[in-house]
């Protein structure tokens, strides 16, 4: 990888920003996250509109299990922390530790998805499906879209771990580790909103 870098008269910059390509992609990814935020905002707005449109089906109070979504929340928050550690180790050039923290993050992600699948199948068994009411349609799609994002993140992280393992830390892989970190923290932020707007609100209203 012929990184076209010029360190002569520039202040220190992290490896992932060291090439023009790297800094462009990180910038572009921030823009993508902004657009993704708008996407979630629409889903949230629709969910909040339909929160009481249960059409005789089960309501949020009857469906949400406090224990499960608390575990999901703690799990995802911790994974965001371990993902941050991975970025930190990447900056220090420590390949093994970076991979290790990414694997921990990935496992926590899988646990999260596991709980979500359990929650969804449980609901379906209780007869609360996508087809039951506008409330449940918007619930499944909102939470499911977040879950899809997490699943894609897991696949993506696998690719990055493989690349780190074979190529080591260079400008390109460093940029990838950094970007997946942004993505993962973003999903955590979305989950905080989900936790508040869907689960906590669902217990109160």
């Amino acid at each position: 990888m012929a990184a076209v870098t010029n360190h002569n008269n520039k202040p220190y910059e992290p490896l992932e920003y060291s090439t023009e390509e790297g800094s462009l992609r990180i910038f572009g990814f921030w823009l993508f996250l902004a657009a993704d935020m708008v996407l979630f905002a629409c889903l949230f707005a629709t969910y909040l509109m339909y929160i009481h449109h249960t059409a005789g089906g089960p309501s949020s109070k009857e469906l949400f299990e406090v224990k499960d979504f608390m575990i999901e929340t703690v799990d995802l928050l911790v994974s965001s922390f371990t993902c941050g550690l991975a970025t930190l180790e990447m900056r220090r050039g420590n390949k093994k530790a970076t991979i290790a923290w990414l694997i921990v993050t990935l496992i926590l992600g899988l646990v999260f998805i596991g709980f979500e699948v359990k929650e969804f199948t449980g609901m379906v068994q209780e007869g609360a499906t996508l087809q039951t009411s506008a409330f449940l349609t918007s619930f499944f799609i909102l939470v499911g879209t977040h879950g899809c994002h997490v699943s894609i993140g897991i696949l993506w992280m696998l690719c990055i771990i493989a690349q780190l393992a074979t190529r080591g830390i260079n400008a390109q892989t460093a940029r990838k580790v950094f970007i997946i970190g942004l993505y993962w923290h973003f999903l955590d932020v979305i989950w905080i909103f989900l936790f508040t707007a869907v689960y906590l609100t669902g217990l109160v209203l």
Binding site: A134, T137, I141
Partner: peptide, 21 residues
């Protein structure tokens, strides 16, 4: 996506009978 899900999977984002708007 919402309308596609409504049409393909019989969901209710926009169907009045199940509370959609």
């Amino acid at each position: 996506a919402m309308l596609t899900i409504d049409r393909l999977f019989d969901a209710h984002f926009f169907t009045v009978a199940a509370g959609g708007q």
